[in-house]
């Protein structure tokens, strides 16, 4: 039952969006978010939206998958939209009881919704087209300069990739422990929230113990394979920027510049 959970949500493929260097894609998302937050009015938003639509088309990711990603935050989007709608001062449109809806409020709420939706869609597109491992690789490589100020970049990346590696193993283990406890009469379904939370204790305790044991064994196994930190390590897959990376980066930078210029003219 738990096995169906997929994390990282990666859709394998071989499109331009998949082949781009992970570092490029991370920078693109940063540029895209910057553009989104600098956009002031319809023309700028339309430009950013156009870039998003093209990116989705190129990636071959089904738009439905992107919309699905929005589901968990629908509530937050609606809540902020309503607040913006009701509490923005300006030219009055309708007024009832203690609320006044203004023209500015309507616009503000509309842009807010647009900004949130596009933000989520853009970042989801990154995880949909980049495998967790290359995402970690990309982050490690991008954050490399931080090593100079003693940020343990390699260690953090290693922790992240090992965590990703062990998610399926631990899920499988949880499944086994649950079955074992059920076989002895444990009840996970009935009762109120507190009782349900209490019922989780007999799952979590053995899971933690086994996770620690695994960590211990893994550490020994890694040492046996000559792991001694990030120093002097080489890589099977070396990240290399290609011409296409520079082209796409230039395109996104141009988009950000255009949005800034448009913003200057209030568009």
């Amino acid at each position: 039952m738990l096995k169906d959970i997929t994390l990282g949500q990666f859709f394998p493929g071989n499109t331009l969006a998949h082949r781009l260097d992970p570092r490029t894609k991370i920078i693109l998302v940063v540029l895209y978010i910057a553009a989104l937050f600098c956009a002031k009015y319809f023309v700028s938003y339309a430009l950013v939206a156009l870039v998003l639509v093209i990116s989705v088309k190129v990636s071959g990711v089904h738009p439905k998958a992107l919309v699905k990603g929005l589901r968990p935050i629908v509530f937050i989007i609606c809540f902020t939209a309503i607040l913006n709608l009701l509490y923005t001062p300006g030219e009055e449109l309708v007024s009832f009881w203690i609320f006044t809806i203004t023209k500015e409020g309507v616009l503000q709420a509309f842009f807010m919704v647009l900004r949130f939706t596009m933000l989520i869609m853009g970042t989801f597109l990154l995880t949909y087209t980049t495998s967790p491992i290359s995402l970690t690789d990309g982050l490690e490589s991008l954050l490399n300069p931080l090593k100079k100020i003693h940020v343990p970049v390699h260690e953090l990346a290693m922790i992240m990739s090992i965590a990703l590696r062990f998610i399926p193993t631990l899920i499988e283990e949880t499944d086994k422990i649950m079955s074992a406890q059920k076989a002895r009469g444990a009840d996970f379904e009935s009762g109120n929230l507190l009782q349900k939370a209490k019922a989780l204790v007999p799952i979590l305790v053995p899971l933690f113990i086994s996770a620690f044991r695994r960590a211990d064994e893994l550490a020994v196994a890694m040492e046996c394979r000559c792991y001694h930190g990030g120093g002097g390590r080489t890589k099977l897959h070396v990240l290399r920027y290609e011409a296409r990376d520079y082209l796409v980066l230039a395109g996104f930078a141009a988009m950000l510049a255009a949005v800034l210029v448009l913003g200057h003219f209030g568009l």
């Binding site: 495998s131 967790p132 491992i133 990739s161 090992i162 990703l164 590696r165 193993t169 695994r214 064994e217 893994l218 020994v220 196994a221 890694m222 394979r225």
Partner: peptide
Amino acid sequence: FQNPDNQIVANV
């Protein structure tokens, strides 16, 4: 080692 799960480091 004994347990194959606890000595594999990577996802691929």
